[in-house]
Design a protein around this nucleic acid. Sequence first.
RNA 1: GGAGAGAUGUCCGAGUUGGUUGAAGGAGCUGGUCUUGAAAACCAGUGAUACCGCAAGGUACCGGGGGUUCGAAUCCCUCUCUCUCCGCCA
Length: 424
Amino acid sequence: MLDIKFIRNNVELVTEALEKRNAKGDIDNFLKLDKSRRELIAKSEQLKKTRNEVSQEIGKLKRAKEDITHLTKEMKEVGQAIKKYDIELKDVEERLNEILLGIPNIPNEDVPVGQSEEDNREVRRWGKVRDFDFQAKAHWDLGEELGILDPKTAAKVTGTRFTFLRGLGARLERALVNFMLDLHTTEHGYKEVFPPYMVHRRSMLGTGQLPKFEEDAFKIQGSEYYMIPTAEVPVTNMYREEILDGEVLPIKHVAYSACFRAEAGSAGRDTRGLIRQHQFNKVELVKFTRPEDSYDELEKLTNSAEEVLKRLGLPYRVVVLCTGDLGFSSAKTYDIEVWMPSYDDYVEISSCSNFEEFQARRADIKYRPAKGEKAIYVHTLNGSGVAVGRTVAAIMENYQLADGSIEIPKVLVPYMGGIERITK
RNA sequence: GGAGAGAUGUCCGAGUUGGUUGAAGGAGCUGGUCUUGAAAACCAGUGAUACCGCAAGGUACCGGGGGUUCGAAUCCCUCUCUCUCCGCCA
């Protein structure tokens, strides 16, 4: 959410930012509502002032046993006028808020301007893409042959876009989760949390998943709860409506969680394999920082996520998303894309964003720079560190051998109980 | 899920015959006196809030929302959360 005053004073800048994002925002209507909001507040508060004064007077007169009926009668009318203004005000504020919640964040200046994914800019590459001297297979074929990926049974039990992991497949998933958590907690200084997988509506609003993207989320029928689409939601909302001590910043959390995404619009793409599932595991990195540090922290966070792929020996590249591809709440995002032989391309495996104060304002997360100073909004950041299912897919494909078996990356062997290969 | 108790300022904690209580008292914090220094004691100050306004100033805020009233922290309704007991369960 942007600051009302900021929009009011920077109409051109905001309009321009919306255009760059191919987004719409009803700025004209916003300005009208903003104006009438302030007028209504002034009127209502003026009347409240007289009401407060006269009511006190009434108290005094009453104790002196004097007649007050003419005053109470008058105040009754004032009371009704106040009520009228307040009802009107509430309506205006609701409409204003609706517009405000629908306006995306303003991209940082150094974000490349562009229409779509095509215009994202590659920042760096790491690792050498392997040249196979045999016909490399897709992970879904390998998985079925090895008996470690079982979407058929999942379809029987639940439905499409779910997968049973079996045997060493399940073990590999678990090993990756532990490897990633260990790396981030022991070497990158993140504090581990394990969050609830369901959150209420207010939390979804806080991080910006709602109200615009209702159909992407799974909602629990008969309750107010949503299945989390990412641990970002519960972890960022941990500090909702709090004023943090400046000394505790930056706060860095790492959280493993399952993630649930309905993504109603995406049917038809990536129908095979682990790339696009309704439920997947992810290790998420979340930071709360001082505004002046947030872009440094974004670089570090991205590096922390990259380190996972480096240690696993998976080739990847980092791209900075252009304005047209940037997520709703983000001011700047790096995607980390891992090399996926079956796609003959890089596939997103992590998305690292600085939301600046966009989420903090929605969720009301502030900090006090120094004792006695006014509290201001923190900057929030997060990124996958990294998506586990896609990592399994990437390992299977990049580490496959000619006989259809899969080598386990060295760093994972201890987490696999010493197992070095997955074979039939 | 059933029965009961509660939610007040940075913290603890008064305040239910509605009015001068933005809120007693204490702690903490800040400054001062005293002291070689510190502690203790004493004195003084202290809404780390939001909104409107150029400002002066004003309004709101005693868990959230709604109601009664000229006026509500105080009365009524409702929701959320916490605690105790019972039930159920991993």
